[in-house]
Design a protein around this nucleic acid. Sequence first.
DNA 1: ATATAAGCTGTCAATATTGACAGTTGTTAG
DNA 2: CTAACAACTGTCAATATTGACAGCTTATAT
Lengths: 236, 236
Amino acid sequence: MKAWQEIQLQALQTNDSEHQLFQTIVSLAAELDFDYCAYGLRLVLPLNNPKIVKTSNYPTAWQAQYQAKNYCAVDPTIKHALCSTLPILWTDGLFASTAEFWEEAHSFGLRYGWAQSMRDVHSATGMLTLARSDEPLSETELAAKAFKMAWLTQNAHIALSRRLLPKLLPEADTKLSNREIAVLRWTADGKTSGEIASIMKITERTVNFHINNAATKLNAANKTSAAVKAAMLGFL
Amino acid sequence: MKAWQEIQLQALQTNDSEHQLFQTIVSLAAELDFDYCAYGLRLVLPLNNPKIVKTSNYPTAWQAQYQAKNYCAVDPTIKHALCSTLPILWTDGLFASTAEFWEEAHSFGLRYGWAQSMRDVHSATGMLTLARSDEPLSETELAAKAFKMAWLTQNAHIALSRRLLPKLLPEADTKLSNREIAVLRWTADGKTSGEIASIMKITERTVNFHINNAATKLNAANKTSAAVKAAMLGFL
DNA sequence: ATATAAGCTGTCAATATTGACAGTTGTTAG
DNA sequence: CTAACAACTGTCAATATTGACAGCTTATAT
């Protein structure tokens, strides 16, 4: 079990690629008796059509099928992950309204599984799924493995999102100046430029100047988008 | 160790008060050999001056001191919690620039400790701190207890924030209509009312109508604030 | 010394927003 | 049947925003 105690350092301090890191996660999953393992990352932005990336050791044919049929939009575990960070067990009830999806998954050997998600300071959501073909998953087993699941979800997300985020969401690397942050904070709280000018004892012109600079840096079309992006990415 | 496997059900399904729940957490902390235990919840809104509530079994005098001197604004563990969900260990280095704070904590018996935070779908941040007076905290001990810490942080936050959030942030209970959500999403992505009208094939007047209704529900002064609130609270 | 960045300010015209007036239609739950 | 609600539309005036012009000061890093 040494690996469990070392992965955190490894995951965060080494220069391992996403692929290498994911292999480490796969082997930790195997130690928990799960052959299959999947990590999904969903960014928040843009709010219409947010980006999702997936990595798994599922059968290639199933990965292709999932992608082709856009099962992301249907998958009840993803729905759950987006509104709760509690672990969710694959049960017939959960998949009741998505029978086709559930049967196809079965046909690829994905039968018993569970998933847990977390959200980070950039509002990105990471979901880790552990699954297998043969052995049913009892409540007892879940309870016994819940600690490691919580930990693995966290660390998998931290390690993988660190590597994926800069590529997928360049705005996350933006540096805002102190003034830009202050002005955007008040903006996000619903103040007009004029009100912010009074509060900060500067000209309205200057307020708009800072907002505009921030919006440019954040690749935002206007101040509403700039405020939302800055808030969601944790800059405020 | 039965308690560990049962707290999740208990925390989520019972009608226990915050106080009772916190006592459960205290006893789980004790099983991990920590006498002291603190849970802090920080809401995001308003972005200027966000609300923070704390619960702990720290000496009453220290709690009062912490509050009186507004140590929230200084505490390096809070700073860390707001930008990372990794556990953080109380070290002299961490408190190097806040010597007075650190020494006072010592004088109340708070010497060895660590903390971990998480963020939920409402963008609220929860931080759990475990501490004690006597026994130093080795890296080995941390590594061995990291799983339970991750789990406890999650469950403490889920259970306590469920009870605290409605009181502290009434907007979190708002129900937005489908149209309001759609319009706010496009707004948050930086579209003007006119553009949204084209996209959704409705009048600009109707777009503004929906935005205005959503802003009223969300207690927002204007559409920027409405978009930020809705996005941060996970409605979009 | 000099470049770079942050911070600050001015004006003007074109657009966008908000607020307050007043309505219609269709669906759903009691 | 009726109340409640979501969705939709109209006009008009007062405010707010954005974009494009141009320029100053101060601090920090090379």
